[in-house]
Computed example of a mutant assay.
Amino acid sequence: MPGWEVRPSNRAQERRLRVALVALLVAVPLAFYAGSWWQARSTQQQALAFQETQVQAEAQARELDELRQRMAVLSSGEQLAQQSNEQSRLTIKLLEEQNFKQQQELAFYKGVLAPDSKVTGLLIRSFDVHATETAGVYRFKLMLSRIGKDDKPLQGRLNVQLEGSMGGKAKNLPLSQLSGDLPEGSTEKAIPFAFKHLQAIPDGGRLGELRIPEGFVPKRIRIKADVEGGKAVERQIEWTDG
């Protein structure tokens, strides 16, 4: 027929085209469903991972909270212990000061006012030392008194040395190097005193603080009193830190 063109048919090619078209039509929904399935699976895995992480975080939060509570209890216990120790320390110090005041009164009545005493002049009555809760730190009190009926004031200078050893060698340390609780005007070899009946160093019912260098082993305290217009008095006291 005029205007028509007849071409030979290629059935094999047409078949391949139809198969490809069908495959394409099938592949599109499969790809969609596969993508949806993968996305859902990925979302599920992420949800599981999130839940697992959340469980771990909650467990760690509980553990941290328990640890904080334990620390709070321990801290409270330490504070109570510190408060108790501080209260005990203050109580001990107060009792020591009260005891020393009583010793002063006894010295006054027994020594100063003893009418039958055959010894007159200055008496180095005591040098008391008490250990503290801090290593190498001690509290001390030196007490001087007068024996006899004379009311004339006694005055002079004290030389107080702490004898001991350090590094296996003998060593003496002046009290002025170990404590700042000494009368005004004290030097390495001279601690001034002046009293009528008795004197405590330090005064005011206080206890002095004495710091011993690390490695020093105290053995005794040697006290020499040079009295103006009188005889020198010397006393040696063995070291005790009870």
Rank of each mutant, 00 (worst) to 15 (best):
S117R: 01
I237E: 02
R7G: 12
G167Q: 05
K141P: 03
P2S: 11
P29I: 06
G168H: 06
V112A: 02
S42A: 15
H197V: 08
R139D: 00
I212F: 10
L154Y: 00
T134K: 15
S9T: 05
W239H: 00
F216L: 11
S186C: 10
K219E: 05
V73E: 09
L154M: 11
Q82G: 09
Q45D: 14
I221D: 02
K189H: 06
M1R: 04
K196S: 10
G35I: 08
L113S: 07
A31S: 12
V160N: 02
Q103I: 07
T53D: 06
K196H: 12
P218G: 07
D116L: 12
L142E: 03
Q39L: 10
R146T: 02
K169A: 12
P218N: 07
K196Y: 10
Q83S: 04
N85P: 01
M1N: 07
K219I: 01
T53H: 13
T187I: 12
M143F: 11
K101E: 03
S165D: 00
L144E: 00
Q155I: 05
R68Q: 07
L173H: 06
G185A: 13
E97Y: 01
Q79C: 04
D150W: 04
T187D: 07
F195S: 02
W37Y: 09
G204W: 05
L207G: 05
A23P: 03
F195M: 06
E66G: 04
D128K: 05
K93E: 15
L74G: 05
A190S: 15
D150A: 15
A23Y: 08
I92D: 11
S9K: 10
R220G: 02
E52F: 14
E97M: 15
T187V: 12
L123E: 03
E238H: 02
S126A: 14
L17A: 12
G164V: 05
T134W: 12
A31K: 10
D203N: 13
A232N: 10
G156M: 10
P153Y: 13
L207S: 13
P8C: 09
V160Y: 08
R206V: 08
P115Y: 07
Q199I: 00
A135I: 06
V112S: 05
N99E: 15
I124M: 04
A170V: 03
Y33S: 09
A232Y: 01
A20N: 08
E105Y: 15
P213I: 01
R220A: 02
G164S: 03
D226G: 07
L207C: 09
R62N: 08
R222Y: 09
P192N: 05
D128L: 11
V73K: 02
L17E: 09
Q161W: 06
L210G: 02
R222A: 01
R62L: 11
G180V: 13
E184Y: 11
I212A: 06
Q60I: 08
Q87W: 14
V227W: 03
K118T: 14
L94T: 05
E14D: 11
A27P: 05
Q54M: 03
T187K: 08
A27I: 11
I223G: 01
A232L: 04
R15C: 14
A200F: 15
L80P: 00
R146Y: 14
